[in-house]
Structure formats: structure tokens, C-alpha cells
């Protein structure tokens, strides 16, 4: 009847047909016969907890028909580990499937599991590069790379050039910007930093949890200078590109440097004396933060109040609301409210 039923290798197995809920069931699928048959053998195999070479053939067959079947991948991984298979060989088998199914994410968990077990990362960064050639913002692929770097301590000289190559292709690739952040700052911020201890509960009383647990004193000045300069060069290429603006603001906040340290740079793209000539709404947003005297969210109190000018902050926010980014006008209005209320409270208005 089918390729399994006719195969003596599977003669000992009594397939368990799918119970898809009977005649009244919803969203039933007209499965191709081959898929129905293979999955009924899978149910039977799983019921008897068999891990064998024929299981690898069966799971490969099902994956070929439906790579989104997460159970098949998990059972396959268990089988590979039980049988002590060559996991590099498995990764090579997976590669073309990953390339053919860009959106599939089960593959990436499988890959992570095997790479972790292998305790080796040879070929992995190369394959990631191949994947990103097809889809430069693939979330699962970038996440896997971040996991890989942490897992094998790859804070080496390959990651930054890789990011720069990706950004050379598309300076607006935000996934690449995120990876740059991770590569530069991730090593200073081990994942174990924030622990659920009494200490972190106390920290929450003056700063949100996401802002605690950093070891900012360890950032060398030269590193921060380099990252600020990198973001600024990118902004010059395309000032309306939000990614480097987010990066620049993030770097300054992370390092505890006042936003106002880059005010002359920002004013090249948005200057309140020339409101008609704004070249970047993000620069205007940045300028509003500088004039509002926004403090770096972490680090020693190094807020620079000298540039604080509530009137100018409001002017920048009005320009955004009315002219340069009006879809967000309620947001800009809300920011203005906060600034003016704060000014009234402190008598600086």
C-alpha cells in the first residue's frame, strides 16, 4: 500500500493512524498518502521509544515533507544522540534544508542542540553567512549566531569585520546593528549578571531591572569613542536611517555619557535655528532629549544640565508632531507634557 507497509524492514511495526478528531473535527488536512503513512509509523516508533538507524530514515522522510513538524526534529535529535552519530555529518545534511526553508525555525533549535553537544563550532559561522546572504535579517539565524558567540566565547576579531561587511551591504540592516551591540557590549554583560536575589529587588527601587547588573566601569574610553564614531559615520551616509541613531543613543547611555556630548554632531542634521532644513527626524528626536536634559539611564550621575532648555525641547517636539513625524504626534505631545510638567515642578520653566 505504501513505501513503509511494503518494506520488510518495517514489517514488525504496527502503524498508529492519526486520530484527527473524527468526522466533526475542525481544520483537518487532506494529507498526501505518503505523509499519512510516514507519520503513523512515527507515532508507533515513538510509542515504543525506539532509537535506531531506521528512525533516522523515517524522520528524514517526514522532515522532507514537512520541516515545520517540531516533534520530528526533537525525536531525531534524541535518536542521533542515543546512537552517538557523527553530528557534523548531520549538520551538513541539515544545511540544504535550512537554505530551502528560510522561515523554518525548528531547524535552528536542532542545530543549536547538536552544536552544543559537539562542543565545536567549525563551519558554523560560514554557514550562517550563507544563510544571511539569502535573508540578511533572518531572526533565527542572527539569534543562533549570538548563541554561538556566547557558547564558544568567540569575542574575537571575526565578529566586528563580519558585522561591518553586512552593514556595508545594507547600512539599514538593524539585525546587524544589534549584533554589533552584542559583540561589543555582550562580553561585558554576562547573562548571569542579573540574579533573582534580594540585591536586585532593592535595585529595582531606583532603576528598572533591565537597567541593573551592568559592569559599566569596565568599558574603556577608547571603545566608547570607537563606537560613537562608527555610528556617526553611518549616520552621515543616510541621516534618516534610525538604526545608527538608536545605536548612538544606546552607546552613550550604556557608557554613562551625557547625550549632549554629541550635540554639535546632531545639529548638523537638525538645528532649531533652521527648522525648514531638518535632514533627520531622528536627529530632532535626539536633540529634544538633549534639551530635555535626559540623563543616561545607567552609570554615575553624569547628567549634563548645561544644555537643558525646556523651550527648545518643546520646539523640537512640536516640529516632529507637526511636520517631520506626525503619525507619532500623540507620542511627541506626551513627551512635551512630561517635560513641561517637570519644569513647572522644579521651577525651571
Amino acid at each position: 500500500m505504501g513505501s513503509y507497509a511494503d518494506d520488510s524492514k518495517w514489517a514488525d511495526i504496527v502503524p498508529i493512524p492519526q486520530d484527527d478528531g473524527g468526522p466533526n473535527a475542525l481544520a483537518t488536512i487532506a494529507y498526501p498518502d505518503a505523509y499519512s503513512e510516514a507519520t503513523s509509523y512515527l507515532r508507533a516508533i515513538m510509542a515504543k521509544n525506539e532509537f535506531s538507524d531506521r528512525v533516522l530514515e523515517l524522520t528524514a522522510d517526514i522532515i522532507d515533507m514537512n520541516p515545520a513538524h517540531y516533534t520530528v526534529w526533537l525525536y531525531r535529535a534524541k535518536t542521533l544522540l542515543q546512537l552517538n552519530k557523527d553530528l557534523r555529518e548531520e549538520l551538513d545534511w541539515v544545511n540544504p534544508i535550512a537554505l530551502a526553508h528560510q522561515k523554518n525555525y525548528q531547524i535552528w533549535h536542532h542545530r543549536q542542540l547538536l552544536t552544543d553537544k559537539r562542543n565545536a563550532y567549525d563551519g558554523e559561522r560560514e554557514f550562517i553567512g550563507e544563510m544571511l546572504d539569502e535573508d540578511s535579517k533572518n531572526y533565527h539565524v542572527w539569534s543562533y549566531r549570538q548563541w554561538l558567540v556566547r557558547r564558544f566565547d568567540l569575542w574575537d576579531d571575526k565578529e566586528i569585520p563580519f558585522v561591518e561587511e553586512m552593514l556595508k551591504r545594507d547600512i539599514r540592516n538593524n539585525s546587524a546593528w544589534n549584533h554589533r551591540w552584542f559583540t561589543v557590549f555582550g562580553r561585558y554583560r554576562p547573562l548571569t549578571d542579573i540574579k533573582h536575589t534580594e540585591q536586585s529587588k532593592q535595585a529595582a527601587s531606583f532603576a528598572p531591572l533591565s537597567q541593573t547588573g551592568r559592569t559599566i566601569e569596565s568599558y574603556p574610553d577608547s571603545l566608547i569613542d570607537r563606537e560613537v564614531a562608527f555610528a556617526q559615520e553611518a549616520i552621515k551616509l543616510a541621516p534618516q536611517n534610525q538604526s545608527p541613531w538608536n545605536y548612538l543613543s544606546g552607546v552613550l547611555r550604556e557608557a554613562g555619557r551625557p547625550l549632549a556630548t554629541v550635540k554639535p554632531f546632531v545639529e548638523q542634521f537638525a538645528n532649531l535655528d533652521e527648522p525648514e532644513k531638518v535632514r533627520s527626524s531622528h536627529a530632532l528626536d535626539f536633540l529634544a532629549s538633549i534639551y530635555a536634559g535626559e540623563q543616561p539611564t545607567s552609570g554615575p550621575s553624569s547628567a549634563d544640565e548645561s544644555q537643558k532648555d525646556v523651550k527648545k525641547a518643546c520646539q523640537a517636539l512640536d516640529l516632529l508632531a507637526e511636520k517631520y513625524d506626525p503619525i507619532r504626534r500623540f507620542y511627541w505631545g506626551w513627551r512635551k507634557d512630561i517635560i513641561t510638567k517637570e519644569a513647572r515642578a522644579t521651577g525651571t520653566a
Binding site: I29, A30, Y31, A68, Y70
Partner: peptide, 24 residues
């Protein structure tokens, strides 16, 4: 219709049938 019998192309949704029910 999405709660009815789905054609064979939906085999990729085989592991998402509870979602098909919930969405509809």
C-alpha cells in the same frame, strides 16, 4: 472555510492545528 477540510498544501500547518482553530 479555514475550519473546514484543508487541501494537501496545508501539510505545513500539521503541527499548528490548534492555532488554526484559535485564529478562526
Amino acid at each position: 472555510g479555514s475550519l473546514g477540510r484543508l487541501p494537501s498544501g496545508f501539510v505545513a500547518a500539521d503541527a499548528s492545528r490548534p492555532w488554526m482553530v484559535y485564529w478562526a
